[in-house]
Structure formats: structure tokens, C-alpha cells
Design a protein around this nucleic acid. Structure first.
Lengths: 358, 358
DNA sequence: TTGTAGGCGTTATCAG
DNA sequence: CTGATAACGCCTACAA
């Protein structure tokens, strides 16, 4: 019997009163203090207008008095709803995901939900693990990133009828479960833009596509758009690595150490692009006269560099907001229909232009 | 009786089997399937080595079979521990807090805890609200930012004996409850460094100090260090605003529109510093020959700009990691003593040097 | 409008 | 080592 333990503890406690207080403040005590039943207190909290005014007041008084705070676990156990949503992101300190996190949190908070956050580190196994944990915690819904998950993931969710959305991806096939930009299309657009300017020799600096279907889709976008024009990226004009500015510099340097050089370099994300642009400056290359550099995703510094960088704007916050709304609606049985494809807008700045005339 | 409702629902459900499954898979069913009592199943899960090998196996089989997942709410209700930690940050998409979040999440996950995340938007009222929510959710501990909170906050936590830590601040007075850099000291150090180089006319570009004791402390640091040398910042050399690159540029321009100009500009954070440095470049000013610019907090781009920026490195990830460890230890009764003051190291780069010789 | 009482899924005490 | 059973704190169907 737990109480026995408490009693023992109390014997050695220096502040028994506090221990007592902690243990004893529950609906029961509030009810006793207000001279009503626990049912009435519960109703006064969750369904106030079904309780007479004076009782409501007396109860409110007792609650203040005793400093009672409802117990979420008990409530969740009883109602089978935790008012909790879990999000599992591949990384947390990346701008994209951080902005989405903020939006999600804010949206959930307004709707009376709490955000549980975890990180998969781009590992499907870990993602599955985190999702399992969330299921155990009794989350009412889940926010994931990408469409490619561990094979056991979907079955797990489907079996328990757990609502979830895949973010930062969009494809028509799975409309309804995903919300984000169409990564492939975005890079087709970008590539077309460059090709239409006259570029023929393309370079690509990408982040690793390992366990990252968004990055893969973007790469495919470049390839497919080029193929339609009978073009392709030469092997020596392709480089892959981490997504840091330092890496962007290094890889860009490598690409420039070829002959012929590419006249347009497409970077897989914002940091790589910033690195490439800064390295180009350090090498004394003029943008866009000598070559064009473009990125994916827009971060503030890109528009403030000596040469502002052409890129694709991904509405991360909006993605998060919509994901949260859709999920909450689904959990509560209302169906909220929002546009699930987030348009990834091309932002043309000074780092891109026609290729140099030979 | 809840079951009555379920029954009603089942009548209209299209997939009654699933609904049934969902409802019925509990410890009880596992126990029945394995031919043991619920107590034994519970033990097999939480204290395996106290259960005989064959029962353990049979139980494991039944668990797999039925796809049982423990119910966190029930467990929490029974044990009075949620294995959950709440963090309330003033902002989520800022590098600092995002890095800390990542570290915290990772650390908690390893220790078997889950992170609940909320945002106070630099509003004490909202912070209190979020903390209340977390208390209701039954978190085992809390991670906050700064020392200045809503007056009702601490009483609330103390009354319920809720463990918590204040991060990104350190002061000797409250050793044990705070973990982070000494903001005041960091800027004293920075200011001394500049003054020792010979600077006398200081400019300051700061983010708003409203509800931000860290930013205030840093400002005080500059003031106090200067005062010790009989110096002060002229009003026209002081500017305050948002913490964006754009704002940094604008405010820097404003500071330069004075006569005499400051010879050293101290920026309150990384983004303001980046903005100031980029604007200086745009204005054709040479760093550090014409003037020095320094920041606070180190973000990757600072070391890659044409003129790398002198700044203070704040070990955000480590702060998060230690906060998580300290809290978990406290929750579990073990006491973990780590160094709670995070050293904020001065990183000297090319943007600072002696003042121009007149 | 209010009270009574059973159940939500686990844990843990105590008796075998 | 195992089983029966009383909590844990709240919600809600049903009776009053």
C-alpha cells in the first residue's frame, strides 16, 4: 500500500506538513472543503454552466484556497485523451525545424494541447523508437517529417488508429497525410529557371540524402529537369557532404577546381549556399557575372550578404501551423480542410543570372 | 459507464474489430494470454529478474502477440512519476535555445524521459501559464530560462516541491538553481578587452531588455566595466531593437551617423553583430582599421564572413545537457554535482583591434 | 442540479 | 517466485 510508504517517509521528513499537503490535495479534498461531491467539483471545472452559480463560486474558492491543480495523468486515464501531440524531427537546431516547432507549439498551446518533442537524428530506427515512446505516453497525434519511415512505423500507428501527418513533403498520391512543399517540383522550377537563362554546365552541392527523402527528391528534381533538356551533371561537378557553411565552402572550392567549370551551382540547402557564396567571394569570383549560385530554403543572412542569394523560400512556420491544426481537428473529430501543399516560392536575388558569354 | 459509450460507438463503427482491439489490449489481456496474473506481467516488464525465465518468455510472447504497449497515464497515476520534463523557453527558433533543446532532448531520452516544450514569448504571464500547464501534466521537473520570473512562479513550484533549474544565467547567490554563463561578467571581459586595446568611445547595439534579465545583465556589464575607467556610452551611441540582421544593419548605420563616431561597437547578440559587420562592409568601412565590432554568442556564419567577427562563445548545448542531467538526478534522488557556471569564452577574430590612430 | 459509485490500466503490498 | 487486491485521482452514467 503506497500510503504505508508515505507514512514511513513522513516519520523522517523535516517538513511533514508539506508532504501531507502534497499528498492530500485532490478533487476529494476540494469537494470536502466546498461541502459538495467530487462529481460536482469535476463538473464545475469541466462543464461550469451545468453547475449552479453559488456552488461554482464555493468550489472556485476551495480550489484557490487549497491550491489544487488537476492531475493530468488521472484525467488522461479516465478520458483516454492526453491533450498531447508528439513531434519527431530529424534535427532540432536547424532553422527549418526550429521555426516549425515554434509554430506548432504556439498553435497547440492555443488549442489546449501540449507538445512533446523528440529527435530522430535522421535514423529510422531512432524515429521508430521515439514514436513508440510517444505512443506509450499516450499522445493523441503525431507530427513526423518525410514519407520514408521504418517499415514498422505505419502499422504501429494504423493499428492504434493514431492520427499523424508527414511534414515538409507533399505529393499528390498521399494527399491528406502530408503537408509541405513538393521538393521535386521546387528544384525542377529552380533548374528550369537557370536553364532558361542559358546555363548548360550545372554543378550541385548537396547534403547527404541518407534517410532523407526530401533531399533525394530535390536532387531528382535537378536531374529530371536537366534530362528533359538532354543535360546532366558531370560527376566532377557533383559533391555531397554535411550541411554546414564550412562544408559549403570546401565543396564549392572542389567544384571550381575543374575544367570546364560549371556556370551554375545549385546548393541543396541554405547553409551550403551561404558557404559557396562566401567562398566564391574569397576566390575573387564575381556573382553572377562569372557564375551563378543558388540555394534551397531562405534564411535571413542570405538576403544580406554582399551578393544576396537566389533561393527557394520554404514556409516552415506555416507548415508547422497547418500540421498542428490538421492534427488537432482530426483528434477532435472535426475535419479541417486546409491546403496541404505549401508553395515553395522562388526568390531571385543577385547571385544568379545568365552564364558568362564565352 | 464508459463502456456503454464504446458499445454505442461500436454499433456505428465500420471497423469494430480494430476498435475492440484498441480498447481491450491491456495488462489484463496479456496476463490472461500468458496464463499469469497482472502482477506478474507488470513485474516481468519493470523488474524482469524477479520473474522466472519461462514465465518471462511466455509473457514476452503474449506482449508481442497482442502488440501491447504500456499506458503511460496509468503508470504515472500509479507511480506518481511521469518521466517527463518540461522546458519553457522565451523563444524556440533562436539558435541558442534550439541547440539547448536538442541537447536536452537527447539527454532526457537517454535517461528514459520525455521532453515537453513550450514557449513564453518573453512574457512572464505566459511563462507562468505554460508552467502551470506543465504542472498539471505532471512533469517531474522544469527547465526555465533566466532568474526573473512571474512572482507566482516560484511559490507554485516550491509548494509542490517541483525540481527546476534556471538556465542561461549564473550567479553565485543562487548556485544550485541556475546553470549558464555569467552574462555580466562576460561583457565585462569583452569590454575590458576592447578598452585595453585603447578604445574610449564605445557604441552599443542591443536587443530589447524587456523581460530579459540576461540581456540586461550584459548591458550592465558594459556599463560597469566602462565606469571603472571613468567612461560611459554616449546616448547617441546607444541603440536598442529587435534581434535580426536587418535591425543590426539599421542600428549600426544610425550609430555611424554621429560625430564623433564610436571606435568600438558592442552588439548584444550574434544577429545584430552580423548585421553591423555587413553594413560596415557596405559602407566601405574597414574592420578593424576604421573601427571594431564585436558580438555575443557565436553562430557559424560569424567565422566565415569576409571579416570574421569577434564574439563570446556560449556553450548552449552543454548548458542544456547539464540542465537535463541535474534535473534528472534531482528527480531521482541521486545528487549529481556538476560545474554549474558555464564559461563564456572570448573568441577574438579579425573584426576587432586597436582604435584608429587619430 | 447534485450525489453515488464504478472504472480507466498500472503498480505495489501482502499473503501464499 | 507468484497471485489477489487495494490504491492512484478523476470522469461520468445513472439514480435521486
Amino acid at each position: 500500500m503506497p500510503r504505508a510508504r508515505t507514512t514511513q517517509t513522513r516519520a523522517t521528513e523535516t517538513v511533514p506538513a508539506v508532504a501531507d499537503l502534497r499528498r492530500s490535495v485532490g478533487l476529494r479534498e476540494v469537494a470536502r472543503a466546498a461541502g459538495v461531491s467530487t462529481a460536482t467539483v469535476s463538473r464545475a471545472i469541466n462543464n461550469p454552466d451545468v453547475v449552479s452559480a453559488d456552488l461554482r463560486e464555493r468550489i472556485a474558492g476551495a480550489v484557490k484556497e487549497l491550491g489544487w491543480v488537476p492531475d493530468g495523468a488521472a484525467r488522461a486515464l479516465s478520458t483516454r485523451r492526453s491533450h498531447t501531440i508528439g513531434a519527431v524531427f530529424p534535427a532540432l537546431s536547424v532553422g527549418d525545424f526550429a521555426h516549425a516547432t515554434h509554430a506548432i507549439q504556439s498553435e497547440l498551446s492555443q488549442a489546449g494541447y501540449t507538445l512533446l518533442l523528440a529527435c530522430s537524428e535522421y535514423e529510422p530506427e531512432l524515429e521508430l523508437h521515439q514514436v513508440r515512446k510517444f505512443v506509450e505516453r499516450g499522445v493523441d497525434g503525431l507530427i513526423l517529417v518525410g514519407q520514408a519511415h521504418h517499415p514498422e512505423l505505419e502499422p504501429l500507428l494504423v493499428q492504434r488508429a493514431m492520427p499523424f501527418v508527414n511534414t515538409f513533403v507533399y505529393d499528390r498520391e498521399t494527399h491528406g497525410t502530408c503537408i509541405g512543399p513538393d521538393n521535386h517540383k521546387a528544384l525542377v522550377t529552380m533548374t528550369d529557371y537557370l536553364a532558361d537563362l542559358g546555363h548548360v554546365r550545372f554543378g550541385v552541392i548537396a547534403q547527404s540524402t541518407r534517410n532523407n527523402d526530401r533531399a533525394s527528391a530535390r536532387l531528382e528534381g535537378v536531374r529530371d529537369a536537366l534530362a528533359l533538356r538532354g543535360l546532366a551533371v558531370r560527376p566532377q561537378h557533383f559533391a555531397m557532404g554535411e550541411w554546414t557553411i564550412a562544408e559549403g565552402r570546401a565543396l564549392f572550392r572542389k567544384l571550381m577546381d575543374t575544367d570546364p567549370r560549371p556556370t551554375a551551382v545549385v546548393c541543396g540547402n541554405a547553409h551550403l549556399a551561404v558557404g559557396a557564396v562566401l567562398e566564391a567571394a574569397a576566390m575573387g569570383l564575381r556573382l553572377p557575372e562569372d557564375l551563378s549560385i543558388v540555394g534551397y530554403d531562405d534564411i535571413e543572412v542570405m538576403s544580406h550578404l554582399p551578393v544576396p542569394v537566389t533561393t527557394v523560400r520554404v514556409p516552415s512556420a506555416e507548415i508547422g501551423r497547418i500540421a498542428a491544426r490538421v492534427l488537432v481537428a482530426r483528434v477532435e473529430g472535426k475535419d479541417y480542410s486546409a491546403p496541404l501543399e505549401a508553395v515553395a516560392e522562388l526568390v531571385i536575388r543577385a547571385s544568379s543570372g545568365p552564364p558568362p558569354t564565352p
